[in-house]
């Protein structure tokens, strides 16, 4: 079941620049697409769901949690996938990196090992368990990043252009995992309109504002028209 994401008159400023202003919306859909030009505020929106950016004004609730007050708690239920696969790998080998996600979550050592093995299997990375992470291809690295997020059994996955640097085959693999039932709720920031069209709802940002949201087909049609 998808939880509730609620923004109430949320604003964020970086210095002189308004990254996001006056965003109010309540979302309960399972697949949420976010589109907009570079610098429109869509990445800032995504980062607020994981307490990577905190609101300067207004209130955010992610499944009932206030990220400003309980950053650690919101990060336990919300996993984040970034565009650059390289920048998400923390530990030297594949298995160690996946295991890192379970650190400090009170999971017993034996269970960590078992869950890592199982998760690598799901992502087809078993043979590479002890390989240095940097020897993986770009697509494999992104699979590793997603694997490291899903092993935590997140309630929500936020993905900021997760397929931007991938070839067609790996793009397909990543998307299949993101849209699988293992991801109860997905916030997908993307320039890929075909991908946005697969969502239940689409949010369109422009100049730091939530311009419109609603039925994917309609929103995407207007967005394409505006920049055709």
């Amino acid at each position: 079941m998808a939880g509730t994401i609620a923004f109430d008159r949320v604003g964020v400023r970086f210095g002189e620049h308004n990254a996001l202003s006056d965003v109010t919306i309540t979302l309960t859909q399972a697949r949420i697409g976010v589109i907009g030009l570079n610098g429109s505020g869509k990445s800032t929106f995504a980062r607020m769901l994981n307490a990577l950016v905190l609101p300067g004004a207004g209130e955010v609730r992610v499944h009932g949690i206030d990220p400003s007050a309980e950053a650690a708690r919101v990060r336990r239920i919300a996993g984040f996938v970034f565009a650059n696969p390289d920048a998400q790998i923390i530990m030297p080998t594949v298995a160690e990196d996946v295991a890192f996600s379970l650190r400090g979550r009170g999971v017993p050592q034996a269970e960590i090992a078992a869950r890592v093995t199982a998760e690598l299997e799901v992502f087809g990375l078993s043979a590479l368990a002890d390989a240095p992470a940097h020897e993986l291809s770009g697509g494999q690295k992104q699979l590793l990043a997603l694997c490291a997020v899903l092993i935590t059994r997140p309630e929500l996955v936020i993905a900021d252009e997760p397929t931007a640097l991938l070839d067609a085959r790996n793009r397909r693999l990543i998307i299949d995992h993101l849209f699988s039932e293992r991801v109860p709720q997905l916030v997908l920031v993307t320039h890929d309109l075909d991908l946005a069209a697969r969502c239940d709802v689409v949010l369109r940002f422009e100049d730091g504002r939530l311009l419109e949201h609603g039925d994917p087909a309609e929103i995407i049609a207007r967005y394409s028209e505006a920049y055709a």
């Binding site: 980062r47 994981n50 990577l52 650690a72 990060r75 336990r76 996993g79 984040f80 970034f82 650059n84 390289d86 920048a87 998400q88 923390i90 890192f100 996600s101 650190r103 400090g104 979550r105 490291a148 997020v149 935590t152």
Partner: peptide, 16 residues
């Protein structure tokens, strides 16, 4: 630049 991205990922992945 890479350091900034990596720092974000460290925090997002639950660094305490």
């Amino acid at each position: 630049r890479f350091a900034d991205e990596l720092g974000e990922a460290l925090v997002a992945r639950g660094l305490r």
